[in-house]
């Protein structure tokens, strides 16, 4: 149903689920999801609230103990998860937050490198609350990256940021992605964000993947490009929002 051709590489897929079901009480939140995300693929997951986005993400990150369900699920060993809030521990300095739980003698050096990469060199000794919202989110990104993930799961990481910071973070995330090439699953409710960043966009609807759309645009992407608008309108329609001129065609991948 929702298998995407993707780039044909030798590497095993970063996510493979088959007939994945998750239930809360009687309600089936995820209904037999078959999803394959290739290694190094940047995928965005859209959906209205209650469509099951967070449930899917938690299932993929293995944080949904106690939730009933069935199906098969395979993810790589190194998975990083980033949250809507930066979720830095307030009692650990920035560097200690980044390397939290990281073993090995070089952990601190790697943490420093990761912080430098997100533009936070020199802030290693700061307390999290001394950083701005955007800087906190960048520190969280460093914490995710320092683990060299094969799969990065991001749950609306820019949801709590102001518009200007958000634009900068989009650029940073794409840049880091291109340098490290993890598979990314970005959960968002911002259609523009999805089309701008991802090479493939999924729309989740009532626990099923309703749309699976490859975004074939060169990067960096301009939101004003006509083809950008085209993708955007198609996705908005799929989400039940009708953009100004209603496009008739609906993707039924």
């Amino acid at each position: 149903m929702a298998t995407h051709p993707g780039p044909l590489t030798a590497a095993p897929p970063a996510i493979r689920t088959s007939r994945l079901v998750r239930r809360f009480g009687e309600r089936e939140v995820l209904r037999e999801i078959d999803l394959t995300v290739g290694a190094g693929e940047f995928t965005a997951l859209l959906g209205r609230s209650g469509s099951g986005k967070s449930t899917l993400l938690r299932a993929l990150s293995g944080l949904d103990h106690g939730v009933r369900g069935s199906g098969e699920l395979a993810v790589p060993e190194r998975v990083s998860l980033s949250f809507q809030d930066s979720r830095l521990l307030p009692w650990l300095r920035v560097l200690d937050n980044v390397v939290l739980g990281l073993g090995g003698r070089r952990a601190e050096d790697r943490g420093r490198e990761a912080l430098a990469e997100v533009g936070l060199a020199g802030r290693e000794r700061s307390w999290p609350h001394e950083l701005s919202g955007g800087e906190q989110q960048r520190a969280a990104l460093a914490r995710a990256l320092v683990r060299e993930p094969e799969l990065l799961l991001a749950d609306e990481p820019f949801g709590a940021l102001d518009a200007l910071t958000r634009i900068k973070m989009h650029g940073l995330l794409r840049e880091l992605y291109e340098r490290h090439r993890p598979a990314v699953l970005l959960v968002t409710h911002d259609v523009d964000e999805a089309v701008e960043l991802a090479d493939r966009v999924l729309v989740l609807e009532e626990g099923r993947i309703a749309v699976d759309l490859a975004v074939d645009l060169p990067t960096p992407r301009s939101r004003r490009a006509p083809r950008f608008q085209e993708y955007r309108d198609r996705l908005l329609t799929a989400l039940g929002v009708h953009p100004e001129p209603v496009p008739s065609e609906k993707n039924d991948a």
């Binding site: 990150s61 944080l63 990083s80 998860l81 979720r87 521990l89 939290l100 739980g101 683990r147």
Partner: peptide
């Protein structure tokens, strides 16, 4: 949740 996701 964070601690679990970092596999502490």
């Amino acid at each position: 949740q964070l601690a679990e996701s970092l596999r502490l």
